[in-house]
């Protein structure tokens, strides 16, 4: 049977654009210290003096007890997968991000399967959103132990943290 169709006449359209990059966004310098840590292959989270939570990457305010998270704590670069998803094979034309096709630009191999994961690093109380590399999609499971894949020559950028791989 399938879906019931609802067809309606099309009236004249007026076109317009909204340039979202014309806004002047502001950000905090919290990430600056975090990426400095990455350069030394260290994961530095913020520590809450109220509930002792360690959040990675750092944030200013604790979302639960609303205290200023002015403490810092280095956590392990090993952790546990708490959640995952598996993409279908990404082929040319399948995905577009900010107008770019990642297969065309060579970021993703044609037909590559991505495994986005949540990782809880030992000593942290938050999930870090990253990707699982060097693993078979079938092997990924909640509870899987992983470690950070560091860039060969860390630059002090978020990209120093390339992803995680099974231990």
């Amino acid at each position: 049977m399938g879906f019931i169709k609802d067809e309606r006449p099309q009236t004249i359209c007026v076109e317009g654009t909204w340039s979202l990059s014309s806004y002047h966004y502001k950000g905090s310098k919290l990430l600056e210290q975090y990426v400095k840590g990455l350069k030394q292959k260290k994961l530095i989270g913020s520590f809450c003096p109220g509930c002792a939570k360690v959040i990675l990457p750092p944030r200013n305010l604790c979302g639960r007890c609303h205290r200023i998270m002015d403490g810092r704590k280095t956590v392990s670069d090993r952790g546990t997968i708490t959640c995952y998803t598996v993409s279908p094979a990404i082929t040319k034309g399948k995905l577009k991000v900010l107008g770019m096709d990642p297969v065309e630009t060579g970021l993703i191999k044609d037909g590559e399967i991505l495994i986005p994961v949540f990782v809880r690093f030992d000593g942290s109380d938050s999930n870090t959103d990253t990707i699982l590399l060097n693993a078979e999609p079938k092997a990924v499971h909640i509870g899987m132990r992983v470690k950070v894949i560091w860039a060969k020559e860390p630059q002090g950028a978020l990209s120093d943290f390339e992803g995680v791989e099974p231990i």
């Binding site: 099309q10 009236t11 004249i12 359209c13 007026v14 076109e15 317009g16 654009t17 909204w18 340039s19 979202l20 990059s21 014309s22 806004y23 002047h24 966004y25 502001k26 950000g27 905090s28 310098k29 919290l30 600056e32 210290q33 200013n60 900010l98 107008g99």
Partner: peptide
């Protein structure tokens, strides 16, 4: 650390077609 910095933007324009 709580200093506010300017964030560099990437180009993104949303397009609309308003039915009249």
């Amino acid at each position: 650390e709580s200093e506010i910095i300017d964030v560099k933007t990437l180009p993104f324009t949303a397009n609309f077609i308003w039915a009249t």
